[in-house]
């Protein structure tokens, strides 16, 4: 799928979401009181986004003959992002379940390994003992430092 098709898909997705929000906004109760109703502003903006997104999709399709300068997103690139988002969302969920220290320690042990697995220029590090030793020390120190700054200094409670 080239970049133009990807951009068209994104524009159409934006248009669909905006249209859905516009319909929802039209149902916001409240009268104008000599001004505009609470529903007017979000409804108008959402319809404008929908219309402009469709227009952008059409413009993008018109120049989709391959001369686009933008590079398309690769399946591997999308895979990297989806995996990162899955692990990171799980981390946020885990903070609520297991507490900040356990979740952060686990995240800081898993995520650097994930980055090294994904990246060819970092993958070679996985075979080195020094990498694993540094990883454990890094995870412990970073967890302690973030805990110290936010929980002890700034009084954040998880």
């Amino acid at each position: 799928m080239n970049a133009s098709i990807q951009e068209t898909c994104l524009s159409l997705l934006l248009a669909a979401v905006a249209a859905g929000l516009a319909v929802t906004a039209m149902g916001i109760p409240g009268s104008a009181h000599g001004s505009i109703a609470p529903s007017t502003f979000p409804t108008v903006i959402a319809w404008l986004i929908a219309a402009l997104s469709v227009l952008n999709a059409l413009v993008t399709l018109r120049r989709a003959s391959g001369e686009g300068q933008m590079k398309a997103m690769s399946a591997r690139g999308v895979g990297n992002i989806v995996a990162f988002l899955a692990v990171s969302t799980a981390y946020v969920w885990l903070i609520g379940q297991a507490g900040f220290v356990v979740a952060t320690l686990a995240y800081l042990l898993i995520m650097p390994v994930f980055v090294c697995v994904v990246s060819p220029r970092h993958r070679v590090r996985l075979s080195r003992v020094s990498f694993w030793a540094t990883l454990v020390v890094f995870a412990a120190i970073a967890t302690g430092a973030i805990y110290g700054v936010f929980v002890e200094l700034l009084n954040v409670r998880f």
Binding site: I28, S35, P38, P42, L48, I49, N56
Partner: peptide, 28 residues
């Protein structure tokens, strides 16, 4: 310009979320 307008309007739409300051009606 179309893309810039879409991005700016997305921000404006986000600004409308929450209880309306005048009537208190819940929006999006």
């Amino acid at each position: 310009l179309i893309k810039g307008l879409i991005a700016g309007l997305v921000g404006m739409l986000l600004s409308t979320v929450g209880a309306d300051q005048v009537t208190g009606a819940l929006r999006l």
